[in-house]
Design a binder for these strands. Sequence first.
DNA 1: ATTGTGACTTGATAAATGTCAAATAACAAG
DNA 2: CTTGTTATTTGACATTTATCAAGTCACAAT
Lengths: 236, 236
Amino acid sequence: MFLGMPERDYPDIRSLHLFAAMSGEYFTALMRGAYVQNFPPQVDLIEEGDPSDFLHVVLSGSVELYSSWNNRETSVATVRPVSTFILAATIKDAPYLMSARTLEKSRIAMIPSQDVRAVFDVDAHFARAIVTELAQCYRSVVKNTKDLKLRTSLERLANYLLRQQKRENGNAEFQLPIEKRRLASLLGMTPENLSRSIKSLQSYGVSVNGNHVKISDQKDLEKFAKPSPLIDDYST
Amino acid sequence: MFLGMPERDYPDIRSLHLFAAMSGEYFTALMRGAYVQNFPPQVDLIEEGDPSDFLHVVLSGSVELYSSWNNRETSVATVRPVSTFILAATIKDAPYLMSARTLEKSRIAMIPSQDVRAVFDVDAHFARAIVTELAQCYRSVVKNTKDLKLRTSLERLANYLLRQQKRENGNAEFQLPIEKRRLASLLGMTPENLSRSIKSLQSYGVSVNGNHVKISDQKDLEKFAKPSPLIDDYST
DNA sequence: ATTGTGACTTGATAAATGTCAAATAACAAG
DNA sequence: CTTGTTATTTGACATTTATCAAGTCACAAT
């Protein structure tokens, strides 16, 4: 039985920068070829190396992008609503470079890659949006590379906390949005070391209880972390 | 005195995938707004954080992309003829994320970013090419991230040698194209450690003399390096 | 050839990070 | 509430990687 995308999901997707400016006609065409599915947690959505048949959109829940080699695994990014993933593979019609699994119960839209490429060729607004999105993605990965190569794990953690704080309106107290072992993997360290790093940051006024973080000496933490817009500013 | 781009440089640039399919009219327009300059070695072309006024094209020589933070510096990529760099910043009209300097005597074309964006909006072929190029760049950086996070420095070196070998037609003997200290920085290690790592690889049949590399036991090295197309295949 | 400069190497040591095992904490299912 | 499962923490230790200092080597300029 084939299930298309329910129209109630259209607005969420349309609100994405990627789809906002394109013609209504093409948007509807894209949506008609797409479908939506609900997944339980810990479900593998795609595996690296597979052909990229669909552009995925996370409508609710969250998805982890990760990669494996030689029996090791690392978390590369967490995708939260509403955003797409594996756009580059879709555009290039190349194999996925990362695997993806749901972290929680998630609602995922899947748009056939060939439809995306076809509409790209005829809708200039969509083309423009794709370019902007890809440039954004590229710059994010470059920033991540700089973070990895220029900073120690303790510095990466400190800056991660400051970024997360900013995302949460800059309050002195906020929540970690993911499990610590996943955070450790994202930051390129082991869970044991993350645990110790958190303790080390106590001397800079950081206290962590479970997922609850409190930054009691903002200046001191920033003096240590030395955040830079060219690494930590996700918007530019 | 203003010097436009000599027409003799047109074919080199036109041969780039990025410019190959666009209309001749727009290509000529782009070229007319551009200019070319010869630089000696070790000249800073751009500094991270600067506004991205030009798309750069390396016509000859070579350029190092690097980044600094907190008095540390790391090499991110080496750009060789004929290719562009900082396309993403140009497209997004955002600050450069990396600095660039010439490694040797180099001939560099500079195309005003606003021209690139203007032509992008009116030439669908150019738009398509930009998207493909950006997707390619993005995927390269993702592969680099996987290399950094999933492998030890010795494994990164081993796989680098195998990649370089492939680029040089797969011969058992080939040359390192850059200084060792730059290679060390590219691979995310210190020069001292690169030196020791090279020695360690002797036990896998690798011998390095100056820039000359000889792989005497291909199978053994590959067994150790475990190259993967999802990390090491530059083309996909 | 001699000299000077910078790249590269080597050895000793320190710091950062990972591994393993065990203990504790958190939490969901019955 | 109890139990089983998993995440997290902790300690001891191993490995990896960086740092510092002192060489050696390569090579260009005289």
